[in-house]
């Protein structure tokens, strides 16, 4: 097990005013494991950011893991020492 702070960059305040969340994960945690752990700490992420009732990202949300972006349908194995952040969809204008 290892602890990791996950930053959430540019998250709308309407969803939550938290900007980071500390989660405890197993070595090799998958995207679904990370999402489940984040949702357990901040249930408000379920719906707008993570699909309702599923441990999956909503379309266009993504994780930055060590400089690589992971969208819904992709997966990773997270280890202690890896850098991870949750990124928002780009808005137009």
């Amino acid at each position: 097990m290892f602890k990791r702070i996950i930053h959430m960059y540019g998250l709308p305040y309407e969803i939550t005013d938290q900007r980071e969340v500390e989660v405890e994960l197993e070595e090799g945690a998958s995207m679904a494991d990370v999402i489940a752990a984040m949702k357990a700490k901040i249930p408000a992420l379920g719906g707008p950011v993570f699909r309702t009732g599923e441990d999956r990202l909503e379309e266009l949300y993504k994780f930055n893991v060590n400089g690589h972006l992971y969208f819904d349908g992709m997966d990773f194995q997270l280890h202690s020492g890896d850098r991870i952040a949750l990124l928002m969809p780009v808005t137009g204008g």
Partner: peptide
């Protein structure tokens, strides 16, 4: 389009 300037400044956009 003026509704997300704050979020975009932090999101990396």
């Amino acid at each position: 389009t003026g509704g997300h300037g704050d979020m975009s400044a932090h999101s990396g956009d």
